[in-house]
Structures are given as C-alpha cells and as structure tokens.
Amino acid sequence: MSGGGAIAATSGGRSDAPLSAHALGRTYDGYVALGAFDLDVGAAELVALIGPNGAGKTTFLNLAAGLLDPTSGEVRIDGHVPGSLEARAALSFLPDSPVFYEDLSVVEHLEYVAALHEAEDPEARIDELISRLGLDGWEDALGSELSKGMKQKASIALALVRPFKVLLADEPLDGLDPPSRDTLFSMLAETKAAGAAIVVSTHRPDVIAAADRCVAIRDGRLAYDGPPDPKVLGEIFDRSELEGV
C-alpha cells in the first residue's frame, strides 16, 4: 500500500495495543452514554462493535477519535492521548455521516487530506482508491453533487488515503451497493493484513462474521467481548435489536 493505508504500530504508551481504553466514561447531564468501558484492540485485529441504537458505540468512537472528551477513564491511540499530534497521525476515523468542504471536489479533498497526513506518493493511492471504489467520473464533483452512496464512498476514500495505525469506522457499509460492500470488505482485509487495528461499529451480520472479535455494548456498558459467536450474541440481544443475530 503506497502512501496511505495501515502502517506498523509503534506503541509509545503504557499499553502495547494500538487502541486501548480503560474505565472510559462519558456522561451528559447525568445520563451515562458510556460507563467504565474497557477495550484493547491489537495490531492486525478487526473488532466488530455492536449494540442497539443509543448503546454508546458512536460515543466510544468519538471519544477515541478525540472528538469528545471523556468524563472518566482514559483512551490511548498508539499510546497517546486522543487529540495529540501523534494520536491524530495514527488514527483514521470514518464517521457515520460524511461531511465535505462545499467548494472542494472529491479529488481535491483526497489531495488535501493526503497532504495534511504527509502520505507518500498520494497520486497513485488516490487513483487506486477512486478506481476501486467506483468513483471514476466523479473526481471533480463537489460534495453537494454526490448521491448518498457516492458520499459514503468518498468518505471511505478519505479515511484510507492517508497512513494510519488505527481505523475507526462507524457503520461504514451504510448506503453502499453490494459490489461496493465487497470492495470495502477486501480493503478492510488488506488494511488488517498491513497491521492496522480496526474497530467497525455495525449492525450487519456479514461484518460481525468477518471480524476477529466482537464487542457488544448495551446501555453504555460492555455486554460481551469475545469471538463473534451468533449463539452467544443471540442470548444478549433480541432479534429486533441486532439484525441477523
């Protein structure tokens, strides 16, 4: 993978895991969105983060990305506090709602993000991502001109165009057609093979099945951490809460 994609983790903190959370908590006016949450994700590991709506999955991802400040506990990205220069260099975040500069085209976004993260040989990486994600012909389109699926593809390209050690993805398959889902699965597999720690928040059984580990959250608390065993997960969640489990 040239320029972008996973790079080997070089832990600088107390835990060896590229992503490590201990007693991590976040409350809003007394409401516990996430409470005393522990999680270590190792290099070359794909973790599926599951749970019903409002369980705390997105809160955890935002805390790890440095977009939210914890009210208790701590989280480290490659040994560094989220928001620090080192953590920002190590972490790539693919959020559930894509956002774009209104006056930059898709390719300009990719060039900009690649430059900010000092990706090597960005042109080749950008061409590869555009081609594989089916963004050909949309390179010069502005964000407002893209359909929901195209926006998601552009957002995925933005997450993968730069080097990283940890990838956090919030419902990354939403809005994608089946061929694009297959492409994303193979990209996640390549990213994992290159040594990245990956956390994917999802409700989808195909993502859960592809994961090395499944971490379930309910009411802001860790409900399960183990292999993606449908039988065990079925005991924790109702069918209505988790698609296909």
């Binding site: 990305a65 440095g66 977009l67 220069l85 080192e86 920002r88 260099a89 972490l91 975040f93 959020p95 956002v99 774009f100 500069y101 209104e102 930059l104 976004h109 900009y112 993000v113 900010l116 993260h117 933005l158």
Partner: peptide
C-alpha cells in the same frame, strides 16, 4: 469538514 479533516490531522 475543517473539524473532521484539518483539526484531526497531525498539524
């Protein structure tokens, strides 16, 4: 987008 891309970048 500035928050998402620039402020989360190592700059």
């Amino acid at each position: 987008a500035e928050v998402r891309y620039t402020l989360l970048a190592p700059v």
